[in-house]
Design a protein around this nucleic acid. Structure first.
Lengths: 195, 195
DNA sequence: GCAAATTAATGATTTATTCAAG
DNA sequence: CTTGAATAAATCATTAATTTGC
């Protein structure tokens, strides 16, 4: 009762003049005069399609990759953490270009869509008569029992972080790896510390 | 919508057997990773109690950090991308320990909760709820105007990636963000996050 | 006045929804 | 249509406020 919400903070911390919003220009919210797509055909790069990856828009998994991922999924992997993602990515990259986020997204999407399909099946079985029902259940593991219910895992909230770990090295990394040239980004002009 | 909520705790993350998944074993599949916090020990004795240095469980923002973040939010920043997060983190780290994910989460949460509050307000708006006239009167100059709708941005789906770049920023930022050249720096320090 | 117990905030994680490329 | 990618919503989990009992 009477939670007075003593939350106001003394925001007198910093001067923060007006010249800040420069970095605020995130999205190029320019007047979209139509559904334009990155029209700049300037070949950002030298078309790194030397391997199996396309121009570079979106990850296109190969069969080997998918196979491994599905295997992992069936094995019970649901939400790999950063390290696992890293490892998986490392392995899958042998079959084609891939990034960690692809692995992460794949698991997310696969899980969600499997569940979706399942729900759809159990709900209205009238539509698709030829429902797949393909995924045979691998009865691997007999000693452990409990493979985490491959089917559905509603909630657990285990705090298994996932990828943000990568950010940690931010503090120790010295961005100026190599020629970085002059990035005219210059965010945060608050402290002229010069990075 | 009917979320079914089944609550099941069976888990254990099947130990990917087979030499094939060997690389998958790294995970801290500690049986029942009790986040119990281990009431005792704490051999570290670090206790940087100096300012705002919690043990290391969860980020506890300082007033300065919150202030800056709120200022940014107020400035219109909604979902900073990887680069921005990096910069913000760099600056905020001057006031206390912080990681990129904290910044990311902060924006996510703040946005969501602001919207939540707003919605809640508009719901019980039948009472002429006396305009809030809240605290804080930061006179952040308003010469700007037009800051991308600070209030609410329903949807844009602009694909502004955010943090995954850290994984392998290879061809991210493709969306006409700007050049900055391609630096394929190699991350992956493989550190076993103590936690 | 202080410390345990409760409650309110809010950081962190997962799921649901949606958009867009192929 | 399928599915990778991205965001929003829901929710868990832990810390700070606040209240209560001594």
């Amino acid at each position: 009762m009477g939670s007075m919400k003593v939350h106001q903070l003394a925001r007198g911390f910093v001067g923060a003049r007006s010249r800040s919003h420069a970095w605020l220009q995130t999205a190029s919210s320019d007047p979209d005069s139509g559904p334009r797509k990155l029209a700049s055909s300037d070949e950002k790069k030298d078309s790194p399609q030397g391997e199996t990856h396309p121009g570079g828009t979106r990850w296109n998994p190969t069969q080997e990759q998918i196979g491994i991922l599905e295997m992992l999924y069936r094995g019970g992997m649901r939400t790999p953490n950063g390290q696992q993602i890293e490892d998986i990515t490392a392995q899958l990259s042998r079959y084609g270009k891939i990034e960690g986020k692809n692995v992460f997204y794949w698991f997310q999407n696969h899980k969600a869509r499997e569940r979706q399909k399942q729900k759809r099946n159990s709900l209205g079985l009238s539509h698709s008569p030829r429902t797949p029902s393909p995924i045979t259940l691998i009865s691997l593991d007999t000693t452990r029992g409990e493979v985490e219910k491959d089917e559905d895992s509603p909630y657990k909230r285990k705090c298994r972080s996932w990828s943000f770990e990568c950010f940690e090295l931010e503090e120790s990394r010295s961005w100026r790896e190599e020629e970085e040239g002059d990035r005219t980004l210059e965010l945060f002009p608050l402290h002229p510390e010069g990075r």
